[in-house]
Protein backbone atom coordinates (compact mmCIF):
# COMPACT_ATOMS: atom_id res chain seq x y z
CA UNK A 1 0.00 0.00 0.00
CA UNK A 2 2.70 2.44 1.00
CA UNK A 3 4.63 1.58 -2.16
CA UNK A 4 1.62 2.51 -4.27
CA UNK A 5 1.18 5.75 -2.36
CA UNK A 6 4.86 6.51 -2.80
CA UNK A 7 4.73 5.90 -6.53
CA UNK A 8 1.61 8.04 -6.76
CA UNK A 9 3.42 10.83 -4.93
CA UNK A 10 6.22 10.64 -7.48
CA UNK A 11 4.36 10.14 -10.75
CA UNK A 12 1.42 12.47 -10.24
CA UNK A 13 3.53 15.59 -9.66
CA UNK A 14 5.57 14.70 -12.72
CA UNK A 15 2.46 14.47 -14.88
CA UNK A 16 1.09 17.75 -13.53
CA UNK A 17 4.33 19.59 -14.23
CA UNK A 18 4.52 18.07 -17.70
CA UNK A 19 0.99 19.29 -18.42
CA UNK A 20 2.07 22.78 -17.43
CA UNK A 21 5.14 22.49 -19.63
CA UNK A 22 3.01 21.95 -22.73
CA UNK A 23 0.39 24.56 -21.87
CA UNK A 24 0.50 28.22 -22.79
CA UNK A 25 2.90 30.44 -20.82
CA UNK A 26 1.44 33.07 -18.53
CA UNK A 27 4.02 35.73 -19.23
CA UNK A 28 3.65 38.38 -21.90
CA UNK A 29 6.30 39.96 -24.08
CA UNK A 30 6.34 43.28 -22.32
CA UNK A 31 7.69 46.00 -24.56
CA UNK A 32 5.52 44.66 -27.40
CA UNK A 33 2.52 43.63 -25.34
CA UNK A 34 1.25 45.31 -22.23
CA UNK A 35 -1.33 44.46 -19.60
CA UNK A 36 -4.38 46.66 -19.43
CA UNK A 37 -4.77 48.28 -16.02
CA UNK A 38 -8.13 48.79 -14.41
CA UNK A 39 -9.82 52.19 -14.18
CA UNK A 40 -8.50 54.43 -11.48
CA UNK A 41 -5.04 52.93 -11.54
CA UNK A 42 -2.65 54.86 -9.35
CA UNK A 43 0.18 55.52 -11.78
CA UNK A 44 1.78 58.71 -13.03
CA UNK A 45 0.26 61.88 -11.60
CA UNK A 46 -0.57 64.74 -13.91
CA UNK A 47 -1.86 68.26 -13.43
CA UNK A 48 -4.79 70.12 -14.98
CA UNK A 49 -3.02 73.44 -15.07
CA UNK A 50 -6.05 75.70 -15.36
CA UNK A 51 -7.86 74.07 -12.40
CA UNK A 52 -5.07 74.46 -9.86
CA UNK A 53 -5.62 77.18 -7.29
CA UNK A 54 -2.26 76.84 -5.58
CA UNK A 55 -3.65 75.92 -2.16
CA UNK A 56 -0.67 73.63 -1.42
CA UNK A 57 -2.78 70.95 0.22
CA UNK A 58 -1.14 68.25 -1.91
CA UNK A 59 2.28 69.37 -0.83
CA UNK A 60 1.33 69.23 2.83
CA UNK A 61 -0.38 65.84 2.53
CA UNK A 62 2.38 64.03 0.68
CA UNK A 63 3.91 61.47 3.08
CA UNK A 64 7.21 61.37 1.23
CA UNK A 65 7.52 65.13 0.74
CA UNK A 66 7.75 64.65 -2.98
CA UNK A 67 5.62 67.66 -3.87
CA UNK A 68 6.98 71.18 -3.73
CA UNK A 69 5.06 74.34 -4.56
CA UNK A 70 6.98 76.44 -7.06
CA UNK A 71 6.39 79.95 -8.30
CA UNK A 72 5.99 80.48 -12.02
CA UNK A 73 6.64 83.84 -13.59
CA UNK A 74 3.50 85.50 -14.90
CA UNK A 75 1.17 83.37 -12.75
CA UNK A 76 -0.59 84.63 -9.64
CA UNK A 77 -0.07 81.58 -7.42
CA UNK A 78 2.33 78.67 -7.06
CA UNK A 79 1.97 75.23 -8.65
CA UNK A 80 2.96 71.73 -7.49
CA UNK A 81 6.20 70.24 -8.72
CA UNK A 82 6.46 66.47 -8.19
CA UNK A 83 9.68 64.55 -7.65
CA UNK A 84 8.83 61.08 -8.93
CA UNK A 85 12.05 59.77 -7.45
CA UNK A 86 10.43 60.15 -4.04
CA UNK A 87 6.81 59.49 -4.97
CA UNK A 88 5.33 56.23 -3.69
CA UNK A 89 2.16 56.56 -5.79
CA UNK A 90 -0.17 56.54 -2.81
CA UNK A 91 -2.15 59.26 -4.61
CA UNK A 92 -3.21 60.95 -1.39
CA UNK A 93 -2.54 64.23 -3.22
CA UNK A 94 -5.09 63.26 -5.84
CA UNK A 95 -7.66 62.46 -3.15
CA UNK A 96 -7.19 65.68 -1.17
CA UNK A 97 -7.11 68.09 -4.12
CA UNK A 98 -10.22 70.26 -3.62
CA UNK A 99 -10.54 71.18 -7.30
CA UNK A 100 -9.63 67.84 -8.87
CA UNK A 101 -6.62 69.42 -10.52
CA UNK A 102 -4.37 66.40 -9.99
CA UNK A 103 -5.19 63.06 -11.54
CA UNK A 104 -3.44 59.74 -12.02
CA UNK A 105 -3.38 57.53 -15.10
CA UNK A 106 -2.14 54.08 -16.03
CA UNK A 107 1.33 55.07 -17.23
CA UNK A 108 4.06 53.61 -15.04
CA UNK A 109 6.96 53.87 -17.48
CA UNK A 110 8.80 56.76 -15.89
CA UNK A 111 12.41 55.64 -16.10
CA UNK A 112 14.94 58.27 -17.10
CA UNK A 113 18.69 58.49 -17.51
CA UNK A 114 19.35 61.33 -15.08
CA UNK A 115 17.84 61.51 -11.63
CA UNK A 116 16.99 65.19 -12.04
CA UNK A 117 14.71 64.33 -14.94
CA UNK A 118 12.36 62.69 -12.45
CA UNK A 119 11.48 66.10 -11.01
CA UNK A 120 8.46 67.16 -13.02
CA UNK A 121 7.98 70.90 -13.37
CA UNK A 122 4.31 72.05 -13.41
CA UNK A 123 4.50 72.57 -17.18
CA UNK A 124 5.76 69.02 -17.67
CA UNK A 125 3.14 67.75 -15.25
CA UNK A 126 0.36 69.39 -17.21
CA UNK A 127 1.57 67.96 -20.54
CA UNK A 128 1.74 64.21 -19.86
CA UNK A 129 3.52 62.20 -22.51
CA UNK A 130 1.14 59.66 -24.05
CA UNK A 131 1.87 55.96 -23.61
CA UNK A 132 2.34 55.39 -27.34
CA UNK A 133 5.27 57.75 -27.49
CA UNK A 134 6.97 56.16 -24.46
CA UNK A 135 6.61 52.53 -25.54
CA UNK A 136 7.30 52.83 -29.24
CA UNK A 137 7.32 49.07 -29.78
CA UNK A 138 3.93 48.50 -28.15
CA UNK A 139 1.76 46.50 -30.54
CA UNK A 140 -1.11 45.27 -28.42
CA UNK A 141 -2.68 45.61 -25.00
CA UNK A 142 -3.83 42.49 -23.23
CA UNK A 143 -6.17 41.62 -20.42
CA UNK A 144 -6.11 38.36 -18.51
CA UNK A 145 -9.43 36.58 -18.11
CA UNK A 146 -10.62 33.24 -16.88
CA UNK A 147 -12.53 31.08 -19.32
CA UNK A 148 -13.59 27.51 -18.53
CA UNK A 149 -11.21 27.27 -15.62
CA UNK A 150 -8.22 28.39 -17.67
CA UNK A 151 -6.51 31.71 -18.04
CA UNK A 152 -6.99 33.30 -21.39
CA UNK A 153 -5.39 36.36 -22.85
CA UNK A 154 -7.80 38.63 -24.58
CA UNK A 155 -6.46 41.11 -26.99
CA UNK A 156 -7.92 44.47 -26.18
CA UNK A 157 -6.65 46.62 -28.95
CA UNK A 158 -3.97 46.59 -31.53
CA UNK A 159 -1.94 49.67 -31.91
CA UNK A 160 -2.55 49.99 -35.64
CA UNK A 161 -6.31 50.05 -35.14
CA UNK A 162 -5.94 52.61 -32.44
CA UNK A 163 -3.90 54.99 -34.59
Amino acid sequence: MSVIRFLRGIIKPYIIVFKHAISKPHTIKYPYERLMFSDGYRGRISLRFEKCIGCGLCSRTCPNRAIEMVEIEGEKHSFPQINFGRCSFCCLCVDVCPRGALFSDEVVELSVIKRDDLIYHPYKLSNPQPLESILKDLKKTITVQIEDGRLSYTLLRRREENV
Binding site: R8, G9, I10, K12, P13, I16, V17
Partner: peptide, 9 residues
Protein backbone atom coordinates in the same frame (compact mmCIF):
# COMPACT_ATOMS: atom_id res chain seq x y z
CA UNK B 1 -1.76 19.91 -3.17
CA UNK B 2 -1.26 17.18 -5.75
CA UNK B 3 2.00 18.44 -7.16
CA UNK B 4 3.76 19.70 -4.07
CA UNK B 5 2.17 18.94 -0.72
CA UNK B 6 1.51 15.33 -1.71
CA UNK B 7 4.91 15.11 -3.38
CA UNK B 8 6.66 12.26 -1.58
CA UNK B 9 10.09 13.82 -1.82
Amino acid sequence: RDSWLENEL
